[in-house]
């Protein structure tokens, strides 16, 4: 196994309740990182857990999660805190359409939030955040 193959067994997961956002994020990541990662999307936190579960079964490790903040059910910061508790190594990024400073602070402290992306984000912001997290 070469290193390229090891890398392709890692996934980046995007979570947002808006399909258009998921499509856009995935395409941006795919265009930037190509086959380096597997890209998965989930429309809710619950679905995200399912995806993580499935990937684990396939022995694919989720290395980063980009999660929206305002979603049905659970808010992004709480979701990322739960993720961090189970997967401390996982890189957490929050995507938000509104700056809820308290939530960002909470995520920084309790979910080791790597970065917060504000909608409308740019492709450069997104890919830089991922790149900087992986280096």
């Amino acid at each position: 196994m070469n290193s390229e193959q090891i890398m392709s067994e890692s996934a980046i997961l995007c979570v947002d309740d808006e399909v258009v956002i998921l499509d856009s994020l995935k395409e941006q990541l795919k265009r930037k990182f190509g086959d380096r990662f597997i890209y998965e999307v989930a429309e809710s936190a619950d679905e995200a857990w399912e995806v993580i579960e499935e990937l684990q079964q396939d022995e694919i490790q989720v290395i980063a999660i980009v999660s929206d903040w305002l979603m049905p059910g659970i808010k992004g910061d709480e979701f990322l805190i739960q993720i961090h508790q189970r997967f401390p190594q996982l890189i957490t990024v929050m995507l938000t359409g509104q700056a809820d400073e308290e939530a960002i602070e909470r995520a920084k402290k309790q979910a080791n939030l790597h970065a917060c992306l504000h909608k409308p984000w740019t492709e450069q912001e997104l890919t830089q955040i991922i790149t900087s997290a992986l280096d």
Partner: peptide
Amino acid sequence: AHEINTPLGAIQASAGN
């Protein structure tokens, strides 16, 4: 703000893509 920034985000990303 969220409601407007979400489609704006999609527009910006789609145009770039």
